[in-house]
Amino acid sequence: MWSADLPKLGVGIGYRDAYRYDVFRYIDDIDFMEITADHFFDPHPKSNQLLSLLSDQFKLIPHGLGLSLGSADGLDRDYLQKLKQVVDTIQPAWWSEHISFCRVRGIDIGHLTALPKTRAALRCLSENIRIATSEIEQPLILENVTQSIEYKNDTFDEASFLGEVLDENDCGLLLDVTNLYINSVNYRFDPLKALWRLPADRIVQLHFVGFYREGDILVDGHAHPTNREIWHLLDEVVRYAPICGAILERDEHLPPFSEILREIDTMREIIDQSSVES
């Protein structure tokens, strides 16, 4: 029982430098924050200072970008040690990474790339997860990514692949609701049916943000206000799963902080409403 054993953190944002003053000004309106672990690898006194300041004032969850759990040539041990240091410093309730690869044979793509949904990919992923979780003792939750590359030899669909990954590795799920919706439109499946096939008790945290349309394709730009379709899906998700936290993940075209707070409030209302009904 994953989400039942972890603390309920509420609703928050992914920390961005542009909001460094706003987050302290509106400290009472933010339940918790997610930091990009990679940004704190450099042992610079300023970043150490910022990290200790943030961890003193907020509940923090470290979110990794570059561990590349799906790499068939294994993990970068140096990266893993740096990640472990950040996690050890914060002592979070959990930490998160993506079900993807971004590095192979020394090439750093700089972009999260979806894995083929095959047994072979599942085995590589599981082996890397086993190494990572043996180094970092806090619970790991894994995030679904958008899929721009479609593979010919997929043996699973999105929901069954996620289910297999979580079960085989005993991990929680960081469900990026926007990514789920984007994939459902781009690859024509029903997002609700996919959601209902995911193990509800393993859905620990959510990510949400807006998408934009480019021709027939939806793109995850992290640059737009949360769309109506995503709010609707979020509503369904919180009715389905007893989540522990939700993070608004805005990276580009950052709006005034009041808009961010409005979105946090909306998400909070959705969660409150679902708990009243249940």
């Binding site: 068939a72 192979v104 090439i107 083929p116 072979a120 085995r123």
Partner: peptide, 21 residues
């Protein structure tokens, strides 16, 4: 098993090259 892994690694390598070169 090793063949599978090598095949996947080769696929990932080809994708990485195409995206970055």
């Amino acid at each position: 098993m090793d063949n599978e892994r090598e095949e996947l690694e080769q696929l990932q390598y080809e994708i990485a090259r195409r995206l970055t070169q």
